[in-house]
Nucleic acid binder design. Sequence first.
RNA 1: GCGAUCGUAGCUCAGUUGGUUAGAGCGCCGGUUUGUGGUACCGGAGGUCGGGGGUUCAAGACCCCUCGAUCGCCCCA
Length: 434
Amino acid sequence: MAKIETPRPVRGTQDMLGGTPEAFAERFAHVVATFDRVRRLYGFQRVEVPVFESTAVFARSLGESTDVVSKEMYTFEDRGGDSITLRPEFTAGISRAYITEGWQQYAPLKVATHGPLFRYERPQKGRFRQFHQLDAEIIGAAEPGADVELLVFADQLLKELGINDGVTLTLNTLGDAESREAWRAALIAHFEAHRGDLSEDSVDRLAKNPLRILDSKDPRDRPVADSAPDIDAYLTDEARSFFEKVTSGLDAAGVAWERNARLVRGLDYYRHTAFEFVTDRLGAQGTVLGGGRYDGLIENLGGPATPAVGWAAGIERLAMLVDVPTAPRDIVAVLPDKRDLEDEALAVAARLRRAGIRCWTPLGGNPKKLPAKARQAGVEANLFVLHPDSEGRCFNFISVSDDPSVHELFKPISAVLGEDRFGNFSHFKNNKAD
RNA sequence: GCGAUCGUAGCUCAGUUGGUUAGAGCGCCGGUUUGUGGUACCGGAGGUCGGGGGUUCAAGACCCCUCGAUCGCCCCA
């Protein structure tokens, strides 16, 4: 017989199994659940948008020359001949929906979503081809207060996830269109003057995206980048005042932040506020949550001039920083004492489950070895199903932990099964020394 | 796209300067013991040493190619 070759998982995709020691699936779910809870505190509506869009949605909004558009998109032609792209980010799709679904009537709109995104990149720590993000946007609000609210939201999320300690909020302004253009021109002039001192990569950036030279990691670029002009001197009064309102709002809300005048963001659509929550605990991937204001994007997509701000956070990256969430220990194992009691045990477990009690049941195996397996599975107690004795008693309830909550677990179980049918209730004493 | 490191049972790994039928722990399956406090013991299944080619009397160990993984560059969450 020919050997069947198992198809390999696609590079950069992940399979996450729950119940393992790493508990990555649980941490992932915990991040999402926390986001969903905190987002309600701030009044963000859940929004669902497609996983794929017409390619133009992303090409037009992210900027044709960005890496994401020029080499990282999963783009294909569907059977009708249309060019389709798997979403590499949320903002473009949400902006498109805002226009095409007539959501302007709800403006200012606060929405949140989460789900898979796709980018054709070389996978490494904290970076995947299919990855997942949390996303929050405020559309139709020009006030700096919107930026502040989004940042306070992000800050609270990270605090509630317990990862705020090693993560800092870095903040910058890219100014309005006028400021940004003036600054950009000054930067280009500066870099052109020092062209010979730049790395090869940065010479390329000079042509494609000169702002990115500012945060280059190449030591050869640092002197030139560090001596480059800050945007501050080029800010219009409006832009300066806007940024001041954002920072004073953060201070008022008690959110710690650092100015990083070298912080720029990759996508073309950012204006005014740009920010990243960064950490040094994720290898080369420092950014855990990032975003900014993107006034102008919706207009670019053919909609009305609409101010907007938003951020996205990598769920995998957050999950890697988060502690393993503690699962409630409220599971009872329902174990047949003998093989011929397997059906009976199944019936008992079914009754308990219908009563809302979490049960662990064996999938075959030697009954003698079941208690050990159940213990490994993390149950709180073992319920043995026996042949009835002369008085009709057919259950033994044995705790496998010292936790007094076992008594609480016994109550509903005995209520369902009949207390008089229990021959034994034992609660183990403290561990004896090994 | 580029670079570095790595690739032995389901998992974590040993395998001496290349030398006979490739090992351990855990897990899995079966059995005995224990009226059940991660019990003890016995037995068992499971490996084309990622794949292909080469050097050699002889390669899991050396060389080349290839595939894959990890980490880094680029870029980004």
